[in-house]
Design a protein around this nucleic acid. Structure first.
Lengths: 125, 125
DNA sequence: GTCGTTGCAAAGCCTTTGCAGGGAA
DNA sequence: TTCCCTGCAAAGGCTTTGCAACGAC
């Protein structure tokens, strides 16, 4: 059976406090604020476990590499701002299901958008 | 200036003969049929060069890792069949531009679909 | 006391890089 | 002859794994 450890608690706390998907380095850095001895391998092992039990989702982002986020989020996709480098989670889905080719059955899909976010479109104040 | 080498010729030939995006191992294996001494590092260097001059496009696929394809293809996306593992290039675009969130300017996008291809949907003959 | 977990170090992939020899122009 | 390119080997990221000590239950 699975045991409760301060390390795993810390990692989960990091995700509870985050609005954005996180990369390993972010999780490690923020986790160490809670558990200073937190080890990289421990984080990897716990991320894997949390993904397996369905608490986290692992996403392979084309420009950011592997990112992790809470699995209980509503369906959404990621927008990467080319200017400020932030990742936004866009609610809903921009997939045009009606335009998917005939004969194919789509079971999963992944959409990544990048460009400029509203903050970066505005002229500097 | 850039010189003509049998290695680079071979790599390009592999792409000319291929209908699908290729992974490094595929390129290496097929390239070695043409130039048996072809080295992995050479392939990496030439892929990088061919991407830089715009002859190839490099795509980060969520489940297949890095794949390469001719850059002169019309806009399309990739469909990965979960049953036969083939990669299809779907012409056109299933992005619903009208549904992209207000205020964001989309400059690039990447869409990956996976599921069952027509061949795998048909009952076995 | 048991056995899941951790930290550390080593090892595994994939990709890049340094270097000396080789070949295109 | 010049100097770009190749093959080889070493090194660099990121991630996984073996192992002994630790600690939750």
């Amino acid at each position: 059976m699975q045991r409760k450890t301060v390390q795993r608690e810390a990692i989960q706390e990091v995700f509870r406090n985050s609005e954005h998907p996180l990369r390993l380095e972010d999780i490690l850095a923020q986790g160490r604020l809670l558990v200073p001895t937190l080890n990289r391998a421990t984080v990897y092992r716990n991320l894997k476990l949390l993904v397996e039990i369905g608490w986290l989702a692992q996403v392979q982002h084309p420009s950011l590499g592997t990112i992790y986020e809470r699995a209980d989020l509503a369906h959404h996709h990621h927008f990467h701002c080319n200017s400020c480098d932030r990742i936004y989670e866009l609610p809903g889905c921009v997939l045009n299901a009606a335009a998917t080719p005939e004969g194919f059955i789509v079971q999963e899909h992944e959409i990544f958008l990048s460009g400029l976010c509203p903050a970066c479109v505005q002229p500097a104040p």
